[in-house]
Each structure stands twice: as C-alpha cells, then as structure tokens.
Write a protein that binds this DNA or RNA. Structure first.
Lengths: 230, 230
DNA sequence: CCGCAACCGAGAGCAGTGCTCTCGGACAAA
DNA sequence: TTTGTCCGAGAGCACTGCTCTCGGTTGCGG
C-alpha cells in the first residue's frame, strides 16, 4: 500500500494530461479533441501518452467522469439543507444551469450524443447520479418534514421505477408513491432536456429571455413534484 | 426555370450520395461517417464528391435537414385530427419515440451535441419545428373545441414566449395564455429530454420498462398542458 | 454542325489523426 | 552492481478531410 515515488510521478503526469485535455475540451469540444495536440501542449511525444491512456476514448471517459463530478459538486454546493424545500429545488436547478452554461463543451460531452459506438455507461452511472441524488434528497426531506401533499399510495412497480431510484428519491415514505417518484424522474430529465434545448439551440425562435424562461420552468417542475409554486 | 438534363443527373447523383451517407449514418453514426467511405460505396473518387458537397459538414447538414423532415413526417402521419385531443397528443408522442428508436444515430445527430463548432441552426429551424407544429396544432384544436380549462389570462411577454411560438402553439385564444404556452414548450422539450435520456443511457438503473415509463410520462405531459389525464 | 466552355471524374498530394512497434536510456529493486 | 521494469522518442501504418491539376465528356450557343 506504499505509494512508491514512481507511482507518485505517474499520477502526477496523469493529472497533467487530464488537465491539458480538459483545457482542450473546453476550447474546441470533444469531437475536435486531439491526443497529439495535448501531447504537443505537454511537450511530449504522442506515443508517450499511450503509456497512461490506452486510447483516446479512455481519456474521454476520464473527462466524462470528472465532468459529472464537477457538475455534481456544483449542485451539492448550491444546496442549503436549512432552506425550505422549494427554495432548495430552485437553487440547485439554477446552479446546474449555471455550470452547464460555463462549461458547454463538457455538458455536451456528458449529455449530448455518446461519442464512440456506445460507450459503456456502467461505471459512469454513480458519478452521473449525483445531481439526481441532490434533487432526491430535497424531495425526501420535504416528505419527512410534511411539506409534501399526501400520495395516493400507488402500488410499487420496480420495473417502472427501480429500487435503486426509490432509494435515491427520498426512500420509503407515505408521501411518496410511484406516481410522485415518476414525476420526480420526469422533472429530472426535463431539467436536462430544457438545458440541452437551450445550449443546443432548439429554443432559437421560441424563447428569447432564457434566464426567465428557465426560472419559470423550474417553478413548474417544483410544482410537478409537489413542492408548491411561487 | 427549365431543368436541363445536366441539372437532372446532378440532382440524381446528389440523391445517391445522400442515400449512401444516410446508410452509413445509420450504421456507424455521425462521428464515424467518412466522406471517403461513401465515395467508395458509390465507386467514385473521394475528390469527385466535393463537386456536390463543399465539405463534410455540408453533407451532415443535408442529413440533418432530411432527418428533421422524416421525423416531422412521422409525427404528422400519426396525428388523426378527428380523434380527441388527448389521444392525438399521446399518439404523436409515441410516434416520435418510435421513430427515434428506429433511427438512433439520426436522432443523436438531430438532438445530440452539435457536431462542428456550432453549426448555424438558422436554416434548420423550420424543419426542426415540424414536431412542435403538430403538437401545437393539437393544443390549438383543443382550445377551439373548448376542451381546455380556462386560462388565467396572463399578460403576453414576447421575450418569454416569442410571437412565432405563439403562432405555432395554437394562435390566440382565450384558453391560451403565456402560462399554458410555457407549459407547452416545457412539454415539448421534456418529450425530447425523456427520449434523449432513454437513448443515451441516462435512465440505466432507474427505469426498466421504458415503454410503460414513456406512456406514463406522455400522460403527465398531456395533463400539464391541460389535456386531462387518463 | 461545330467549337467552345462549363462541367466533371480521377489521381496525386498535403496536413492531420489514432495507434503500434521498436529502440535506447533511466531508475528502482535485489 | 546487476537486473528488470518502466518510460520517452521516433518511425511508420492506415486513415481522414480537403486541394489542385489534368484530361475527357458533354451540353449549349453561334
């Protein structure tokens, strides 16, 4: 378990590579990210880079992991557990949007088209879930504080909403049934659907004031999951 | 205005090129679509292809246009104007999803990350709007047939929902104010947000039965815009 | 009917890419 | 000190988008 000096410098080099790659990603986007270019930026031969990443896709996977982490951290940082649930919801949504607007290419890498021939999303799932975890915790806290309307007590349906998702979305509680959990999943995907449409230009011609539109949308989504509306 | 024989054969060649490109797109995706490969498939030199498309991006733009057209046609074909509004809404949503599942790479090209350094979406807007037009017409018909609840009569705000969007979303009607139009825009983007999450793998671990989940989601969205729920 | 001009296909070539292989040097462990 | 593992560099392969030039065909105007 001792980290030899070789491992240390190796980890350091990996850090430099990912940092340079992240810069390139932010500048030119994932499609134009070139392994040789990051090698040039680091002053090393392109072949040397393969000692640390087996392929370009592995480098991108690393960037995806880091991106999910950064976005999740932004969401967590924006959540003040002492605030009322609806305010927390709006604040987290706004923080997510702000991050995506500051890192559009990272966002496209995370939530745009999968880059290669369907990269295995298995190991990225936990990192990708962090925003969902934050939103789910808000929902659960609201339920436990009695801020949620009574649920109809719909029967559980593990194929519709998996047990894992239930655990994330506040756990078991009388105020939470599959109907509100489904609406929570819908709100989650709608949040990113709205952001994608904005960043990818699908709202051109329909929405001018993106800031106010987004605020109104998150308000609707808060109402959809039972957190009331402003 | 006479189409000379030269123009005719030229248009024919362009058709063959786009057809071959579309096949390639369906197989390997937009990122791996190679100009030289389509030239090979057509048995011509790669340089000859540049007589018809100035660049690879122009070919992709053409495929994007065609994709929007095909998706829009599928949505229109699924809309039976004599059916009740809610049924029409559900049918169109389902048709959109079915098309995207049959053409995942085309969908990724349309609604995934913009491919080059932000292609100008100006000329693609009318083609991209077709699904929105279908959904908007359903909303307008519902309003005119009195199937929509009374609106609060919120003041118009052209920066929030543009005049063009108003024209698409059923036009002016007492049952339609900016609040329901905003919810219609939200439903529109949520439809594609849901599809994107499903196709791009973000629902892995949360939703097993995608078919039933999608039906429930479209039901929620129908309720959101005032078409009632099942 | 013929000549000209526009058009078009093919080939070579350039710069760039991801990736592999081999070689030589440096450094840690025995 | 020797040994073996690791690592960087260079050459090279197959591929890409794209340009340029050359030669042939073909359709149109005189």
């Amino acid at each position: 378990m001792t980290t030899s000096v070789r491992e240390r410098v190796r980890a350091e080099v990996i850090g430099e590579i990912t940092a340079a790659a992240r810069r390139q990603l932010a500048e030119v986007g994932a499609a134009a990210l070139s392994l040789r270019a990051v090698a040039r930026e680091l002053g090393m031969a392109s072949s040397a880079l393969y000692r640390y990443f087996p392929s370009r896709d592995d480098l991108l996977t690393r960037l995806i992991l880091d991106g999910y982490d950064a976005l999740g951290a932004a969401a967590e940082a924006a959540d003040d557990p002492s605030a009322p649930p609806r305010e927390r919801w709006l604040a987290v949504c706004r923080a997510v949007r702000n991050w995506t607007r500051a890192h559009p290419h990272e966002y496209a890498l995370l939530y745009g088209s999968p880059v290669p021939g369907y990269t295995a999303p298995r190991d990225t799932v936990p990192a990708a879930a962090r925003v969902g975890v934050v939103l789910g915790r808000i929902l659960g806290d609201a339920a436990r504080s009695g801020a949620l309307p009574a649920a109809a007590g719909r029967a559980r349906d593990p194929e519709l909403v998996s047990d894992d998702a239930v655990a994330v979305l506040g756990g078991e509680h009388p105020a939470l049934d599959d109907a509100v959990r489904l609406r929570a999943l819908l709100a989650w995907s709608s949040l990113f659907g709205t952001i994608s449409f904005e960043l990818f230009g699908h709202f051109v011609g329909s929405v001018e004031d993106g800031d106010r539109y987004f605020d109104r949308v998150t308000d609707e989504l808060a109402a959809l999951v039972g957190l009331g509306r402003g």
